[in-house]
Nucleic acid binder design. Structure first.
Lengths: 112, 112
DNA sequence: ATGATATATTAAGGTATCATGATACAAGAA
DNA sequence: TTCTTGTATCATGATACCTTAATATATCAT
């Protein structure tokens, strides 16, 4: 039996944090976050900037929103997304700094 | 067609960072990292502390090692693991701080 | 109202990841 | 050597995740 998804009530702290990190574990989602760190964007702009499909972007934005990385507001027919917490910028910078000395290692990882 | 794993050469920066975050996206792996932040441990101690199987712990340690989170050294018949970069502690603290105001949101996330 | 554009949601299929169990490897003791 | 303990690897099966395509919803213009 593989990993069984827990019900919200039985999810403990560690699982919540793991889920939070999972938010940044997908290249498309991470790219979206990076782009939004440059400023508020609507979905079409994100589609353009990422090269992903509209459906993909919308779905990943939903994930990011659930995880608390982004918030959105409607403006006319557009929906504008932005980073909800400036500390996300620091988080990414820190991760990049840590990765810096290990990039080649991670690149070659075949275990996940 | 779902996600196709890229060859190391064609993996770009964003994918490397995503992979790095993926390292912390599994509860068992994250727990191991948290435990190791308390000090060097051997595999058996980690099995004991996490409640996971030996196989599971070894496998996840391999992932964490590839990602550069931990390093290991042999000492007699034991293999001791430790956090390879103290900044990982900061990374976790920062993540927890960001999550703090969004825990309930993340807990209920059904999109991933 | 209808049509056009922007975004969200859903279902289906394929791939990646994970847990399990078995097995292999390594080091020390007898 | 064999036995024991500690650790790593591998194959299998099950679940989770991602992508795609279709469809639904929303807003604005006509």
């Amino acid at each position: 039996m593989a990993q069984l998804k827990l019900q919200p009530e039985e999810m403990v702290q560690t699982e919540i944090y793991a889920k939070f990190f999972h938010g940044l574990s997908n290249p498309t989602r991470l790219r979206i976050v990076e782009i939004l760190l440059d400023g508020e964007k609507n979905v079409s702009q994100l589609v353009e900037a990422t090269g992903a499909t509209q459906s993909q972007v919308s779905n990943q934005l939903a994930c990011l929103k659930w995880c608390g990385y982004v918030t959105s507001r409607q403006e006319g027919k557009y929906v504008l997304y932005r980073i909800s917490d400036e500390r996300v910028r620091t988080l990414l910078q820190l991760a990049k700094a840590i990765v810096a000395d290990n990039a080649e290692h991670i690149r070659c990882c075949t275990r996940m």
